[in-house]
Simulated scan of single mutants.
Amino acid sequence: MVLVGYTVEATDGEVGAIDRRTYEGRQVLVTRADGALLKVDVNTVERIDHRDHKVYLGVSRRELTPR
């Protein structure tokens, strides 16, 4: 499943978009608007909306790990 370019939404707002260098083990790399990379564990994904190209997480932005 290709999710490159999908917007990532945490419980408290937008995080960024899935990067081309998508997978690193069980984590997805997300590029924030400021260019920083975040590691998002795949277990935090609650749902994927393919129509709107969005990935919804079950955690807040504070809970995400900077790369």
Results as ranks from 00 to 15, higher is better:
V42C: 06
G25E: 04
V45Q: 06
G5M: 11
L3G: 09
V42K: 08
Y56Q: 06
S60F: 03
R47W: 09
V8Q: 03
A33G: 00
D34F: 05
H50A: 08
L3M: 12
V55M: 14
V4T: 12
V45R: 01
R62Q: 14
I48W: 03
E63W: 01
I18W: 02
V2H: 14
A33T: 05
A17R: 12
V45I: 15
T44A: 12
L37K: 13
V59F: 06
K39Y: 01
A36W: 03
D19I: 00
H53G: 06
V4G: 07
E24K: 06
V8F: 02
L64Y: 02
V15F: 00
T31M: 13
L3S: 09
G25C: 09
G16I: 06
L38H: 00
Y23R: 11
A17H: 11
L29H: 08
Y56G: 01
T31I: 10
Y56H: 12
V15N: 00
Y6L: 10
V42I: 13
A33Y: 03
R67Q: 14
E46C: 01
K39N: 09
L3D: 04
I48L: 14
R62G: 12
H50D: 09
L3W: 10
R26N: 13
R20N: 13
Y56I: 06
R32N: 04
P66N: 11
E63S: 13
G5V: 04
D19W: 06
R47C: 05
G58T: 09
V2F: 11
V28Y: 00
V30H: 01
H50F: 12
S60I: 01
H50T: 08
K54V: 08
Y56F: 14
K54L: 13
E24D: 12
R67V: 11
L29G: 02
